[in-house]
Design a protein around this nucleic acid. Structure first.
Lengths: 343, 343
DNA sequence: CTGAAAGCGCTAACAA
DNA sequence: TTGTTAGCGCTTTCAG
């Protein structure tokens, strides 16, 4: 077994300067790639840096410059939202881009109540806003560059990037209507999230536009969980006049609906058409590939980091920019024209 | 629309001292809850802090003390591992505990090649080790408190917390054997991960212990993805002498096997018994609840933070501690005694 | 092009 | 109990 070394005596800029035979300011200049330091001195410094394996102290740098390259990602610790494909995609997207841009990613799983410590953070990304609007306002008040994703915020002057949830949902339902469906049910996500409520909105808009009016029981509200999706599916399919199509607010719920249908002997897509939302790869498997609404999660995540880094750089004028990313209907096998059904 | 405020002129310890009519050291003392500052001064300082909404600069503090409460979580950016229930559970567990302990969580999605900047980090948690052992060695060399989770590391003097993957797998297979099964196949995860290879080991150990020898095609290696699980299941179920039971290295793969079985008209558990690994809540749904091996992911995550914080506090002597957490077989409905099968 | 020196905001001896 | 002061390691004028 190898022994863990004692903390290496921290080598500072002074040591480098000494070894290179120059002043510390010269060292500082070369490690900051600033002005041109003369050839000889430059190489000597570089040499010393390498030899000593010198790494500048980020704290001293930040103290001196007053700048920080720390990005805080704030995610409400909300069960439903965090247990999803969505959360992981977001973290992946943001994490990898931060890594590439040499930004430090601080993960903040907030309980929405506490006001966190903003000191030392160079930029903030709010992923969703669920009962923590005050945290956003606090952040804005502090003057730290901030951006909100997956939530369109219109009453505050803050950059945000959201998905066109309403549009995506509407499109999906219109597709179903185009297939001849009229009895289209919706299993919504947790309406506390903007995404879920917008999807519901889109669903309703598509129906209204086509003058379709449905009984209230065709809309079932859930918390995004598979358990509640199952309950909803059972309720829907056992209706005396069941829907011929179901649009769910997430793919994992759609998958659950499929499972219930199969158990009940309801064939997909012959007897029931299903459209999900997410384009979760899981939807590809199973006997019938799921038709779904693809949302550019990774793009949203990465875009947010890119924008934020610009804001943090201070190069960009803080013109408030609100973006809505389009969705795309991915047609696979879980839907069928209602006329071709032998129902 | 509200305007975003200009960066508030940073109020420092000096301002507080001035307002409170004391020296900065007194202020420092009270914010550090150190020695008892006399009643009057204390209240005045507290008052000033509140009035000015003062928050100490973490950078200055760290510079001065040389200590950092930043915990870096290093996760190899490895597709298979990151796209899982597992990853999210880990992040959740670690994230929430860090939040509670007031530790800053730095997320590091590493590509296993680069050697990252260790400066400014107070402690490190390696989640899995996949081709980044050199990063671990580097961390150890730097003297920063480090802990490895989900990987038993025996050739280095480092604390680690792992799951008893071999034991869990062995138990699962023994359970199957106890049910009368002999033709037990295994769909493994990506053997680049220790978890997957240990589970395979456990599977083999159980067979060996019971003197069961099976053809090589009863073990199929995958990358943990549902796609490969599907392929594996199809291959297995179409064998001229197919298995009566399948043990998979993850629940999501088990679920996929179930789906394939259903499509092929293979009944579960009558014709085929299935055991997964993870205790992923998704296993609860679907027509047949999945029997699985529960692993204490959240516990492992939280334990790691707790241990690390002790190490970082320096209170605890660095006695290397290697922990293996037990698993638990959760028996649900996806297995049946082979004799009661009407095969 | 380079060095000296003044901080950045805070902590921790050391005095008082 | 409190204040003074010397750094922590680095950046950044300002001279040279």
């Amino acid at each position: 077994m190898r022994r863990q070394k004692e903390p290496a005596k921290n080598i500072s800029i002074k040591h480098v300067a000494k070894l290179a035979g120059v002043s510390i300011s010269t060292v500082s200049r070369v490690i900051n790639k600033n002005s041109a330091v003369k050839g000889k001195n430059r190489t000597q410094v570089l040499e010393a840096v390498k030899q000593l394996n010198y790494q500048p102290s980020v704290f001293a740098q930040r103290l001196a410059t007053g700048k920080s390259n720390v990005v805080a990602l704030v995610i409400p610790r909300y069960e439903g939202i965090f247990y999803s494909f969505y959360a992981l995609e977001l973290i992946r997207g943001i994490g990898t881009l931060c890594e590439a841009l040499k930004l430090d990613l601080l993960l903040h799983l907030t309980d929405t109540k506490t006001s966190f410590n903003l000191k030392g953070v160079g930029g903030i990304i709010f992923a969703d806003l669920i009962g923590n609007k005050h945290q956003l306002e606090e952040a804005l008040g502090s003057g730290i560059p901030t951006i909100v994703i997956n939530n369109y915020v219109d009453h505050l002057e803050v950059n945000c990037i959201a998905i066109d949830n309403a549009g995506g949902a509407k499109n999906a339902v219109k597709y179903l209507i185009g297939l001849g469906h009229r009895l289209i049910a919706h299993i919504s996500g947790d309406l506390i999230t903007q995404a879920a409520s917008k999807r519901l909105e889109g669903y309703e808009a598509a129906l209204k536009e086509n003058k379709i009016s449905l009984p209230a029981e065709f809309i079932i509200k859930t918390d995004y969980s598979r358990g509640q999706a199952r309950l909803a599916a059972e309720k829907l399919l056992k209706l005396s006049r069941p829907p011929t199509a179901i649009f769910t607010a997430s793919d994992s719920m759609a998958l659950e609906v499929m499972a219930v249908a199969r158990e009940l002997g309801v064939r997909i897509p012959e007897d029931l058409s299903i459209v999900g939302f997410d384009d979760n790869p899981s939807g590809l498997y199973g006997p019938v590939a799921l038709t779904t609404v693809r949302q550019p999660l990774i793009k949203m995540a990465q875009e947010s980091v890119r924008e934020l880094s610009l804001l943090m750089g201070g190069t960009k004028k803080p013109i408030t920019k609100k973006t809505i990313l389009p969705t795309e209907l991915i047609i696979r096998e879980s839907c069928q024209s209602v006329s071709s059904s032998k129902n």
